[in-house]
Simulated assay, not measured.
Amino acid sequence: MISIKSKQLRRSLYPIKIDIKFDVHDIRKYPAIDIADELTLINQNFLLNIKPEELFNFAFLSTEKKILAPNITSMLEFYDKTVALFATQILRQKTDKLRASVIIHLFSVVQQLYIKNHDIHSIRIILATFDHPSIFRLRETWRKFRIQKPKFYTALKYLWNVFSQENNWDDYHSWLEQKFIKDCLNKNQPMLLFIGYLLSKMIIDHYRYYEISNHNKNEKSSRVHMTFIEYIKSSPKHYK
């Protein structure tokens, strides 16, 4: 995977000032594959910078998380900022047709993230954009999106169902572990999983290990954090 050389795209991902004009910051000016690759490389970099000590004693949940878990905090903050940026890209358009065209372009990015990059984390960013109240309520925009790209709309509904919060994310976890992760491992493909899934799984494994283990506390703490640490230091490395 090759990083985008253009500084313009990086500025579009980190805008200093939002200009309502149709200018260089409009993401439709950039191919979906380039945006997908850049998102994956940015989030991969965040993930690889996470230090083991950021995980011990669940430092990322503390009130001092910016100090104790700076890289995890930065990754989550970038998630929120990118959702806000993409939502702004849609809302800044003056007509439903133009707003639908941005949604279509963003879903083209989702396709690249899924098929080429196997990057669930960045897909979750775009789906969170579509789920944002200010975007979800745009009924006429979504109607135009459905009419213009019926196959995109069907695929989006499938993802929305897969990533549903129902049953405490059971369907999502089942799909992720029984299909997505298994397929990537069988094909020896790199994958970038959602940081929230990894952290929640680490917490669940921690308490499960506590219940079944007879080891001392230090051994437990070391053992339960290794799965996440090993994931961070292995799979994403294969991106080029």
Score class of each variant (00 low, 15 high):
Ile120Arg: 08
Ser174Gln: 14
His121Leu: 12
Gly196Pro: 03
Val102Gly: 01
Arg223Trp: 11
Asp119Arg: 01
His118Asp: 07
Ser101Gln: 03
Ile204His: 13
Ile67Thr: 11
Asn161Phe: 12
Ser235Asn: 13
Glu38Trp: 03
Glu38Gln: 05
His132Cys: 09
Glu64Asn: 14
Phe136His: 13
Asn167Ala: 13
Lys66Val: 11
Ile72Ser: 01
Phe58Val: 09
Lys201Arg: 14
Asp170Lys: 11
Phe145His: 02
Phe163Met: 12
Gln44Met: 13
Phe130Glu: 03
Lys151His: 12
Lys21Asp: 02
Met191Ser: 03
Ile90Phe: 01
Phe152Pro: 02
Leu159Phe: 04
Ile20Trp: 08
Asp183Pro: 02
Ala100Thr: 00
Ile126Gln: 05
Met1Pro: 08
Asn45Gly: 09
Lys17Gly: 04
Arg28Phe: 00
Ser74His: 05
Ile195Tyr: 06
Phe86Pro: 02
Asn117Gly: 04
Ser221Gly: 09
Leu192Ile: 00
Ile203Tyr: 10
Ile27Pro: 03
Tyr79Val: 02
Lys144Met: 12
Arg92Thr: 06
Lys116Gly: 08
Lys7Cys: 10
Ile35Cys: 00
Ile126Leu: 10
Asp26Lys: 00
Phe163Tyr: 13
Leu159Gly: 00
Ser3Val: 10
Arg223Glu: 12
Ser213His: 05
Phe60Thr: 01
Leu55Cys: 01
Asn117Thr: 04
Ile103Met: 03
Asn43Gln: 05
Leu55Ala: 01
Gln165Gly: 11
Thr227Gly: 11
Gln8Trp: 04
Phe194Ser: 10
His215Glu: 15
Thr141Arg: 01
Arg146His: 08
Tyr172His: 03
Ser164Glu: 08
Glu211Asn: 09
Phe60Gln: 04
Lys7Leu: 14
Ile125Lys: 07
Thr82Ile: 03
Leu48Phe: 10
Glu219Phe: 15
Glu77Trp: 07
Lys237Ile: 12
Phe145Ala: 02
Asp37Phe: 08
Arg10Cys: 09
Leu47Pro: 06
Asp19Cys: 06
Ile120His: 07
Ser200Glu: 15
Tyr209Leu: 13
Ile135Pro: 02
Leu85Ile: 15
Ala36Ser: 01
Ser108Asn: 15
Tyr231Val: 04
Phe130Gly: 00
Phe46Trp: 08
His25Arg: 11
Gln112Lys: 14
Asn117Lys: 15
Lys220Asp: 09
Ser3Leu: 10
Leu47Asn: 06
Ser62Tyr: 06
Ile147Gly: 02
Trp175Met: 01
Lys5Tyr: 09
Lys217Gln: 12
Asp96Gln: 13
Ile232Leu: 06
Ala128Leu: 05
Gln89Gly: 00
Leu9Gln: 04
His118Asn: 15
Lys157Phe: 05
Pro52Cys: 05
Asn43Ala: 03
Val224His: 10
Val162Asn: 05
Phe145Gln: 01
Tyr158Val: 11
Asn161Gly: 09
Phe22Lys: 15
Tyr239Met: 03
Val224Asn: 09
Ser74Phe: 02
Glu166Thr: 08
Pro133Asp: 07
Phe194Cys: 14
Phe60Asp: 04
Val109Asp: 01
